[in-house]
Design a protein around this nucleic acid. Structure first.
Length: 1045
RNA sequence: GCUCCGGUAGCUCAAGGGGUUAGAGCAUGUGCCUUAUAAGCGCAAGGUUGUGGGUUCGAUGCCCACUCGGAGUACCA
């Protein structure tokens, strides 16, 4: 039985598409799950993407990393259910639909109709689902999209209701009136983790210094600083730090200002004439009353006086802080403490209310300049300028957020803060620093989860409330049916349908209706371990089996997103982690190190990469380029390098093997034992192979994709450019002996094992190789992805052998170097090469590898440099590691002393294993042989090359015999070129006719046997009238012609 | 402001629990092998390891400060 012939030119796209077709036709993915059903369960969660935008290169990154470890686990025999999922709710979807429909705000949505709007959202959430499916499929990410969970389905929503009910039974849900970041365009508050998505640096805001005249001190004002002029109409007090020193400063116009002493010099520049007329502690100011700049809104109780607050600093501003209770978290806290009024001067659209007469209905940020003008006019402005700072914007619509007091629903995650932290300690994060760093810090600063959103397309908050504010959470559809005394099983659990459901309060009989909010979309994704199974209403066995996850993976931006929502929900609900291992990927940057983003237009379209270089190469680049957690620069060309350096090298090795194995009708035979019958080089590559299996396995066990791929690159290079290159003759020689069998068996084992090691990372080419190499009639059954992961045999790993071969490679490389410097091409045979390798020089290494070295370097004889009979220049190199550690500060002296020794005398002692003695100051010190390295530098009569204490020297004298042999090799080369350009098959026999001049003619005659053997020629004839182009070898003329025999 | 990650050859990246001469690939120059591969194989050139201090016999690695890039974070009023 023969292998399918392999073309040495690889058509990557075609190959990958055929493998894809094979997977599909034979349901290989499905089989990879089913065939392992009895195995250990390994749980993977798909972090659901939203399909309302096109997938980009960064999605290929996360999907590649999501794929590699589950594929590996399957080959280890684990059952890995890989269910896909789609995130469908939330602001991102709503905003896209608003754009499509040309709606600009909530009023327009409501007049358009919530039910129609939500129907559009439902559709939009899947707008690009085909693009996602296509890309997922094409890059070989195995995830089951047919059974994917969808967050908008009733079952999914019902599970979330159940979760919220559980949380409310633990009294974790409450309604709070807090200052929250609020998007005036979207008309809703954002949660902390959404807030962190939208900070923008260098935001310019006004910076104003405003005078608040004191009631009881004429001509004296408190000077306050703010960057939000629009909050001034809401002012209810000012805060000072009781411990800070304040001063009264009299200006030229005889008015006085009170500011923190520490800030005087920054506030009053040199040309401003001023004098300090008084000094006091902050405490002395407390209680003083002032005239507020505005008093549009009437209120009851006391306000507009100085209060004391520790958080006031003197790093910026004036040290006197204006408080608007409704527009700052501190302000709200202080107001509550001192019972100050809360003046709601702004409505839910971010516009001033009608009481704020001059700017009524104006968006507050637009009113800023008008307020500034007004303050100037009233002579209350000390100065105003621009201020650059980092400010939060809505992560979806880019509107600057306002901090505003809103009534919203919260989950008291802070109740579980210490447990969140504890459980996080048990999670393996890759990279490790995220655990205590980015994620750990986040948990340390945990605040309650603001759950409600005043929006439309989301999981409705299942809270029903009556006019007294008494509320309850409905935890299932059945419960809703019971409460309403009707069948709700057909009800769409979205707005506006659930909004219509009312029922009497079971306790009082008062009518309860649903609160208007939907919930934070991040809660949807974090609920996915539970809701994807409609737990606990069904599938409780599957849920138990599939919780928690062994492995999840997303980019770092999910730290506060999905990673947090998963962790928070499962901690609160089950007192458990939701995932045990998590790979946290760095961002993809463009060629210039900038974050890829649509707005910058620097996105690399994944299809450009796939179409040009294929999915395998794309994936391989992502695994090998840099550690997963690091951000990475990316461009299409970088993936091209993978193809050139790795894919094609592997493919050529594979094509070589198949070509010759078929010529020899070789097929794998399990009786043949390479260990017994293999040569040194076979044992070496087998040793490297087993070492490779060990390294790759260890790396995959530790979620180290880089470690699981880079070593394969190195191995394939060794296999192709060392093992195959040096073993070629063994494959094409005519005798079918055990040496040839060993070569085939060895190369076969290497290629088959590589196909398995590559299966998780390069699933296409791995299967292409495997399916051909396995030689099975019923190939539909066989896929590398259904095969078992290879074991390594520790006994076959011979580190000593590996190091020897590494040394031999270095020596050969030095030999090439020496040839280069003497300008002697490899085709010209030389009589001898000698080597020096320091302490190794005495081993019988050279003898054992003489054949290999002489072939590579085309020399007749190989030996070590002999210190006894040749004039060698020795140098002594003290080894700092040994000597430095042993002698510490004496080391520099010792080093100098060693350099003054006679190198010949000292070297012969050291090489003979004797100590040498040096004198440093008054100390005699014996230096051991392994504390000095003896090096050889060069010698006359040799062409030499030296590196790192290794030396290669070539004897460059040419005899007539050597010259003749060189010419014969040149002739063979010409013939081989002609064979190739004539399109002869590698096994074709030929006859050669030629005409040559002078010594070349003699050389051809003398080496005719060698030439015929090399060129597979049956005849080699000197003919007067040869047809063909005249060529030159050196100074000699040549005409040569070939015929197929 | 604070925290984290990074700064190594023109480019993309390694390594280093302090120690001889800091490694690959790409690009450049140059040469060459070939009955697998010119999408190949060598060789050369290319580095004061961001800057400045400190610890040390010895720092690219450890410590401090600074700087640049990126990310995160904050009650910046």
């Amino acid at each position: 039985m023969k292998f399918k012939p392999v073309n040495s030119r690889l058509d990557i796209e075609n190959m990958e598409l055929e493998v894809l077709k094979f997977w599909k036709d034979n349901q290989v993915f499905k089989k990879s799950m089913e065939s392992r059903e009895d195995g250990r369960t390994y749980v993977f969660y798909e972090g659901p993407p939203t399909a309302n935008g096109l997938p980009g290169s960064h999605h290929v990154l996360s999907r590649a990393f999501k794929d590699i470890f589950p594929r590996y686990r399957v080959m280890r025999g684990d059952y890995v259910l890989r269910r896909g999922g789609w995130d469908t709710h939330g602001l991102p979807v709503e905003i896209e639909v608003e754009k499509q429909l040309g709606l600009t705000g909530k009023e327009q949505i409501e007049s358009y109709g919530i039910s129609q709007f939500n129907a559009q959202c439902r559709q939009s959430a899947f707008e690009y689902i085909q693009e996602w499916e296509k890309l997922t499929d094409r890059i070989g990410f195995w995830v089951d999209l047919e059974t994917a969970y969808v967050t908008f389905e009733n079952d999914y929503i019902e599970s979330i209701w159940w979760i919220l009910k559980q949380l409310s039974e633990k009294e974790l849900i409450y309604k709070g009136f807090k200052v929250v970041p609020y998007c005036t365009r979207c008309g809703t508050a954002l949660s902390d983790h959404e807030l962190s998505l939208g900070y923008q640096d260098n935001t310019s805001d006004p910076s104003i210094f405003v005078k608040f005249p004191l009631k009881d001190l004429s001509n004296t004002s408190l000077l306050i600083w703010t960057t939000t002029p629009w909050t001034l109409p809401g002012n209810v007090g000012v805060a000072v730090n009781p411990e800070v020193d304040y001063v009264t400063v009299e200006l030229e116009d005889a008015t006085s200002l009170i500011v923190a002493k520490a800030l005087c010099t920054t506030l009053f520049t040199d040309d401003t004439k001023y004098s300090v007329t008084g000094e006091m502690k902050g405490t002395e100011l407390v209680g003083m009353e002032y005239e507020p700049p505005y008093s549009f809104i009437p209120f009851e109780g006391k306000a507009h006086y100085v209060i004391s607050a520790d958080f006031v600093t003197t790093s910026e501003g004036t040290g006197v802080v204006h408080m608007a209770a409704a527009f700052g978290a501190d302000d709200m806290m202080v107001a509550t403490k001192y019972d100050l009024p809360i003046l709601m001067t702004v409505d839910e659209k971010g516009c001033f209310v009608k009481e704020v007469v001059p700017w009524s209905s104006m968006w507050v940020k637009d009113a800023d300049p008008l307020i500034i003008d007004d303050l100037v006019e009233k002579n209350l402005m000390f100065k105003h300028e621009k201020y650059l700072h980092t400010y939060p914007f809505c992560w979806r619509c880019n509107t600057p957020l306002l901090y505003m007091a809103r009534s919203t629903w919260y989950i008291s995650t802070t109740t579980f803060k210490s447990r969140l932290v504890e459980l996080n300690k048990t999670i393996n994060w890759y990279p490790h620093h995220i655990r205590d760093g980015r994620f750990g810090n986040w948990l340390d600063n945990n605040v309650d989860w603001a759950l409600g959103r005043d929006r439309y397309w989301g999981t409705p908050l299942p809270i029903w409330m009556d006019e007294d504010g008494d509320w309850l959470i409905v935890g299932s559809v059945q419960e809703l049916s019971e409460l309403t005394d009707s069948n709700c099983s057909e009800l769409d659990l979205h707005r506006p349908y659930v909004d219509e459901i009312v029922f009497p309060n079971p306790k009082t009989g008062k009518q309860m209706s649903r609160v208007p909010e939907v919930i934070d979309v991040w809660f949807d994704s974090g609920a996915m371990p539970i809701a994807q199974w409609h737990y606990p209403f069904e599938n409780s066995e599957i849920f138990d089996q599939q919780f928690p996850a062994n492995y999840i993976c997303e980019a770092v931006d999910q730290t506060r997103g999905w990673f947090y929502s998963l962790h928070a929900i499962s901690t609160m609900l089950f007192n458990s982690v939701a995932f045990k291992n998590v790979a946290c990927l760095g961002l993809i940057l463009d060629e210039n190190g900038q974050k890829m983003s649509k707005s910058k237009g620097n996105i690399v379209d994944p299809w450009d990469v796939i179409d040009k270089h294929g999915a395998d190469a794309f994936r391989w680049y992502l695994y090998t380029a840099s550690p997963a957690g690091q951000e990475r620069r990316f461009s299409t060309d970088l993936v091209g390098e993978v193809v050139r350096n790795f894919t094609l090298t592997l493919w050529n090795t594979y094509a070589f093997f198949v070509t010759y194995a078929n010529l020899d009708s070789w097929s794998p035979n399990s009786d043949f034992d390479v260990e017994d019958k293999g040569s040194d080089i076979d044992l070496w590559i087998i040793s490297e192979l087993n070492n490779l299996v060990k390294d790759v396995t260890d790396a995959l066990e530790n979620y180290d994709a880089t470690g699981a791929t880079r070593p394969i690159e190195r191995f394939v290079d060794l296999l192709s450019n060392w093992y195959v290159r040096l073993s070629r003759r063994r494959f094409w020689k005519t005798e079918d002996d055990s040496d040839k069998k060993a070569a085939y068996a060895t190369l076969y084992q290497c290629l088959l094992t590589i196909s398995k090691l590559l299966a998780p990372s390069m699933p296409f080419i791995a299967d292409e190789l495997y399916r051909n190499l396995i030689l099975d009639d019923d190939e539909s059954k066989n896929s590398v992805h259904l095969s078992d992961w290879p074991d390594y045999d520790a006994h076959l790993i011979d580190q000593n052998l590996n190091e020897e071969m590494r040394l031999i490679q270095k020596l050969v490389s030095l030999g090439h170097n020496a040839r280069q410097s003497a300008q002697l091409k490899v085709r010209q045979p030389l009589s001898e090469v000698v080597f020096w390798a320091g302490g190794k020089t005495k081993d019988n290494l050279i003898e054992r590898y003489a054949g290999l070295i002489s072939t590579e370097l085309n020399v007749k004889k190989v030996r070590w440099l002999d210190s006894a009979d040749e004039a060698i220049v020795y140098t002594l190199h003290p080894l700092p590691k040994q000597l430095g550690q042993k002698y510490g500060s004496l080391f520099p002296g010792i080093r100098e002393a060693i350099k003054t020794l006679d190198p010949v005398d000292a070297s012969s002692k050291l090489l003979g294993g004797e100590n040498v003695r040096v004198i440093v100051g008054s100390d005699d010190i014996d230096i051991l042989p392994d504390e000095i390295e003896v090096r050889v530098q060069s010698r006359k009569g040799f062409a030499t090359a030296e590196e790192g204490g290794l030396v290669a020297g070539l004897v460059t004298d040419l005899t007539e015999d050597l010259i003749m042999e060189g010419l014969a090799r040149e002739f063979v080369r010409k013939v081989q070129d002609l064979r190739k350009s004539n399109g002869f098959d590698i096994s074709d026999r030929i006859s050669i006719t030629y005409k040559a001049s002078g010594v070349l003619n003699d050389a051809i005659g003398r080496h005719s046997g060698y030439i015929m053997g090399e060129a597979l020629a049956l005849s080699l004839d000197l003919v007067e009238d040869v047809e063909g182009n005249e060529e030159k070898i050196g100074d000699h003329h040549l005409i040569v012609s070939l015929q197929k025999s």
